[in-house]
Design a binder for these strands. Sequence first.
DNA 1: ATGCATGCAAAACGTTTGCATGTCT
DNA 2: AGACATGCAAACGTTTTGCATGCAT
Lengths: 150, 150
Amino acid sequence: MTKAIKKFRKYIDEKNLQITRQRMDIAEVFLQSGRHLSVDELYELLKEREISAGRATVFRTLKLLNESGVAGEVDLGEKTRRYEVKFGNTHHDHLVCTGCGRYIEVYSGQIEEMQEKLCAEHGFKPSSHRLDIFGLCRSCGIEKKKKGYR
Amino acid sequence: MTKAIKKFRKYIDEKNLQITRQRMDIAEVFLQSGRHLSVDELYELLKEREISAGRATVFRTLKLLNESGVAGEVDLGEKTRRYEVKFGNTHHDHLVCTGCGRYIEVYSGQIEEMQEKLCAEHGFKPSSHRLDIFGLCRSCGIEKKKKGYR
DNA sequence: ATGCATGCAAAACGTTTGCATGTCT
DNA sequence: AGACATGCAAACGTTTTGCATGCAT
């Protein structure tokens, strides 16, 4: 956790921005949560912990965390933007359960390789990618069977 | 094209909805365009062709086209939602060029297979997925080199 | 004739921004 | 002191909705 904070501080420094109470608080709560948070969820989480920060500041800080590479944007097709901890986390894809809304983070070196190949075939220089698989997780799959859905 | 329209009509019928001039016009222009259209782009396209339809109706009809399986939502990380023709189009992934905004539709049976395997390993039942690779297309890659960017 | 569809304008979202005030350096 | 950050509320762009009217069945 501390390493990520350090990286954030460093980024702020390099950009000649200021280290403020809000930025540090927001970063810390975000990093501790370990979830894919929407701006509003983080804002509420801060309120619960009686840390005052305006919505706008949370937006602005998450943007900063994203730029610094500490956070990454996740877009699971919802209306809302989400952020996940990127620092110290290797790249991964998502298995998103449409039953319970939870997700599993997965990784396959082979898939990554195939993607490289695919890009090469098209003279395309990849810089990032996103693979989300939607469906039912183990427990939701069993649920549905039990209840006789579908 | 006609087959897709038929499927749409059938869907409307089954749902006991009504076949209206707007719905048919919107569906036709959408299917003919063959592009990933945003609601607004389609709305404008309709205006150009002097077909009158309110924005709200275009929204509602695209939602319907999506439900019917004729259209599919595409989310390339923009603020705006886009739709693509799904009917008669096999599943594909996207290579999205961050230089010119264009995209290439690609497909790899091997990647699909690996995804299946990945899901199986996690007891996950996939129903759909989305793979978007962002980067520079051939011509934008060359452009950048020429201009000495980066 | 009935009920669903349309179109407008208003509301509802998530997000961004302008500006006066407060804080870091 | 000076510059930058904050917080509020207003502005924004996209999508949704309420409601009177119009059209399909």
